[in-house]
């Protein structure tokens, strides 16, 4: 199980490298959405691993609310590009 988690952490490094390398704001936003979803799924995985429902509920909330915040941020950035 630890090996699966280490693999997930390595997958988390891919969008971080993309953020560090790329200059386009939308690439950064894509990396943000990727990191946000990956961390939420990791939280869910850890909650199953530890059989801890409290952590699981937090993971579900982060997964759903994170997408809402992402859409808000994308909308503000898009209006900035229009004007």
């Amino acid at each position: 199980m630890n090996l699966i988690l280490i693999g997930m952490i390595l997958a988390l490094l891919i969008p971080l490298y993309e953020v560090w390398k790329d200059d386009d704001i939308w690439q950064t936003m894509l990396a943000f959405s990727s990191v946000s979803t990956k961390t939420a799924v990791m939280i869910l995985f850890i909650s199953v691993l530890r059989d801890d429902w409290m952590i699981g509920v937090v993971g579900v909330i982060i997964l759903s609310v994170g997408n809402a915040g992402f859409m808000l941020l994308a909308h503000i950035l898009k209006r900035m590009g229009d004007t």
Binding site: V19, F32, V35
Partner: peptide
């Protein structure tokens, strides 16, 4: 600011 969001997730 976007990286601040990433930092919040991590």
């Amino acid at each position: 600011l976007v990286i601040r969001g990433i930092l919040g997730a991590v």
